[in-house]
């Protein structure tokens, strides 16, 4: 017994500093492998535009997942994001189309509503010490319910600001292009990266996720951090909602049903531990891309129903959660 522990020690030591990168590296390898397989099997799969399309088609999911990353890093969860996306899209459509409000007023307003709803949920979670699961579940019902009170039917958008933004294509060298929403999403990712790694708020997020009790005893602002991550998630959901509006050009109560689960899946597949304290926003980007590639492959396959996406995502989630356990066990 003792001999094995001794022989493992140097290996464990060498791995020790880098262990937290393993899940993200796993996701990256998976992404590359899937792209390779797709390229070999389907003609026209391997092109720059296909990669860019991943960003274009999943821009809103990416933004929502970035917000979710903050929450999960503290060890929490936010189930309200899908409903907040739907509510934001609904508000955009309703205020602009039915009330004629200018989009440049509506969009900041929607973002503010998302931020405040997140802040409110964060405050309830922290000060009443209630599980985030329950509080954000309530938030989810609330936001989804509000959608129905606004309109039972889909409201389509014909406002020129929205349609122009939606159809805007930014050309890249080599005949490639991206949409405005993809640019916004990448911008959000970059900001999130800087916040998480170079600001006190970001480091406090990791500290709270690592050990909330310790963070408190170390004199870190746990209350402010907890509320901030839900506020950030609320803001990102609203932002994702605006991007979603650009994508769909309509508001509808049944938009983005189950999006919260896609976002959580992307974060987990991206290597962030559900227990908090470990993970990277770039991992989340990889997670979103993996989900996108699965979708693309199934589209290319042609014969498979789109529900296969769900099945594959489910299996992947199981694998990644098991992987987290294994790594966690080794650390202990």
């Amino acid at each position: 017994m003792t001999t094995t522990t001794v022989s493992q020690a140097p290996l464990a030591k060498a791995l020790a500093g880098r262990q937290r990168y393993i899940p993200a590296i796993g996701t990256l390898s998976l992404l590359i492998a899937m792209i390779l397989v797709g390229s070999v099997r389907y003609e026209g799969f391997f092109s720059g535009q296909i990669i860019l399309n991943l960003f274009i088609d999943n821009a809103f999911l990416l933004v929502v997942a970035v917000g979710m990353t903050f929450v999960i890093l503290t060890g929490g969860i936010d189930l309200s994001v899908g409903a907040v996306v739907a509510l934001s899209a609904m508000l955009c459509a309703w205020l602009v189309e039915k009330h004629g409000w200018p989009p440049l007023v509506v969009i900041p307003l929607v973002l503010l509503i998302g931020l405040l709803s997140g802040l409110g949920m964060g405050a309830i979670i922290h000060y009443f010490d209630i599980q985030p699961f329950i509080v954000t579940l309530a938030g989810m019902f609330l936001a989804r319910g509000l959608c129905y009170t606004i309109s039972l039917n889909s409201i389509s958008i014909s406002d020129p600001v929205f349609t122009d933004l939606a159809q805007m294509q930014i050309g890249l060298p080599g005949g490639l292009f991206v949409s405005s929403s993809a640019i916004f999403a990448v911008l959000i990712v970059a900001i999130a990266f800087v916040v998480l790694h170079y600001t006190r708020l970001g480091r406090n997020v990791y500290a709270v996720g690592g050990n909330k009790q310790s963070a408190m005893l170390m004199g870190l602002p746990v209350a402010r951090t907890t509320m901030s991550v839900y506020a950030i998630s609320g803001f990102c959901s609203a932002f994702g909602g605006v991007l979603f509006t650009l994508y769909m050009l309509s508001g509808y109560s049944l938009h983005a049903v189950g999006l919260e689960l896609d976002a959580i899946a992307a974060v987990v597949i991206g290597g962030t531990l559900l227990t908090g304290g470990s993970g990277f926003v770039l991992g989340t980007v990889l997670g979103v891309l993996v989900l996108g590639v699965i979708q693309t492959i199934i589209t290319f396959q042609g014969t498979l129903s789109s529900w296969w996406t769900r099945i594959v995502v489910g299996l992947l989630l199981l694998v990644f959660i098991a992987l987290q356990r294994v790594i966690g066990a080794r650390q202990r």
Partner: peptide, 20 residues
């Protein structure tokens, strides 16, 4: 030990009073 095991040694010493 009331520190955060997921943060680096340096961070555990400096967090809350980082140079910025």
């Amino acid at each position: 030990v009331n520190l955060c095991p997921n943060l680096s040694v340096a961070e555990n010493i400096c967090i809350g009073r980082e140079h910025r």
